[in-house]
Structures are given as C-alpha cells and as structure tokens.
C-alpha cells in the first residue's frame, strides 16, 4: 500500500463516518431544524465521496443543487411550517420503532452479504477515463443527447414562466366579497396599474408617492 491508497482509505473512512453519523442524526433527532442542517452535512460528505470516485462534475452539481437548492428549500419549509406541536405519544411506540429497526438491520445484512459474496472480478478494474468527465459530459450533451437537453430546457422555461404568472397574481379578498357581479371564468386579480401614475387617481394604496 503506497501513500495514495492510504490517503484514499483514510479519507473514505472519515467521509463515511460523517455520512453515517449525520444520517443517523437526520433520522433520530427530535428537533427538525437540526435534522435539516445535518442533511446538508450528509450531502456535502457525499460530494466528497464523489470526488473520491473521480466524478468531479457530479460533486460540483451535488454541492450546487442538493446543498444549495434542495436543502435550502427544506429549511424554508421547516421555518415556514414550524408549528412546534408535539404529537401524542403512541402507546408502545418502542415496539414499532424496534420492529422497524430490526427490519432495516435485516435489510442491511441482506444487502451486505449479497455485496460481499458476489465476485466483482469482471468489473474490478479501476480504469479511470482518459479525459475529464466534464469534457465527456459536454460532448455527449451537445451531440448524442441534444434533444433531451433542449426538452429539459424548454420544461424549465415553462416552469419559470408559470412561477412568474403565479407570483404576479395578487388576490384582493375584500373586493371579491363586496362586488356581486364577479365574472365566473376569470380569476380575481388586481387590475393592472399604469406605469405612469396620473395625478387624479390617488385611491389605490400603492400610488401614494407624495
């Protein structure tokens, strides 16, 4: 064992300890804010494992997308819906949790025996690709997989326009209740304000610039 393999094994051990500890914390901790932050720790440690596997682009995408988008979204959900209500503790809840833990340990034992008893000799070569994976991904995205790439971009554009349309709609519930002759097929929406505010119309609350 030379130095590089030793460094690899030590870093793998540290990263796997971080992953497993933080994942146990995500599952077992009572406070859900701690769980959300520990989920970020899990995702960052998995990005480190991707770096160990020579997948640099996927590691960068993991940090950007999972830690930067998914984890922040979950934190927003936690902070917005935080009711701090305690569920009534079920009678004999330890039986259910113990049974679930037993089943999950059995699943892990089954999977690990399967992994250890299968011979991976036909695959266990460890041949790294010659060029960087980012270059390969870029070449394939713009040659073979051009149509799915463009379809995904069109889908993202549709989601973006839908988000803008949904966010621009401002409901005015007191006017809905007051007006009797509300047309049925149109959504209640604030009428478009003119860009140049004229001097006579000061009835709208948003146009009091003086």
């Amino acid at each position: 064992m030379n130095l590089a393999e030793g460094v690899q094994i030590v870093s793998f051990g540290l990263l796997s300890l971080m992953v497993l500890g933080a994942a146990l914390g995500v599952v077992l901790l009572q406070n859900i804010v701690y769980s959300a932050f520990l989920l970020g720790g899990v995702l960052i440690s998995i990005a480190g494992l991707y770096l160990l596997l020579n997948a640099d682009f996927v590691a960068a995408a993991q940090v950007l997308i999972y830690v930067g988008a998914v984890n922040i979204l979950i934190l927003f959900a936690v902070m917005l819906v935080n009711k701090q209500e305690d569920f009534a503790s079920l009678p004999r809840s330890w039986v259910r949790q113990g049974a679930t833990a037993l089943v999950c340990t059995g699943l892990f034992a089954l999977l690990s025996t399967m992994i250890l008893q299968t011979s991976w000799l036909g695959l266990n070569s460890g041949a790294a690709p010659e060029t960087s994976t980012t270059i390969l991904i870029g070449e394939h995205l713009f040659s073979d997989f051009l149509l799915p790439f463009e379809l995904a971009s069109v889908l993202l554009l549709m989601a973006l326009i839908g988000a803008v349309v949904l966010a621009r709609r401002e409901f005015l519930p007191e006017e809905i209740v007051s007006s009797e002759r509300q047309p049925v097929l149109t959504l209640p929406e604030r009428p478009r304000q003119p860009m140049v505010v004229s001097s006579g119309t000061s009835s709208t609350p948003g146009s009091t610039s003086e």
Binding site: L20, S35, A36, L39, V42, A101, F108, I115
Partner: peptide
C-alpha cells in the same frame, strides 16, 4: 456497503417519522 447502510437508514426514517418534512429528508437520503 456504505450506500446500503445509507439506504437502510433512509428506510428507517421513512417508516418511523411522523412529519412530512422529515419524510422528504428520508427520501433525499
């Protein structure tokens, strides 16, 4: 084996949690 352990922890959290956000976090695992 590490992926199998992470998968088992996620399954445990998916089954035992009683909060929707925690179920989402287990699915992320």
């Amino acid at each position: 084996i590490l992926a199998a352990a992470l998968f088992s922890i996620g399954i445990y959290g998916l089954v035992t949690s009683r909060n929707v956000v925690r179920v989402l976090m287990s699915i992320e695992l």
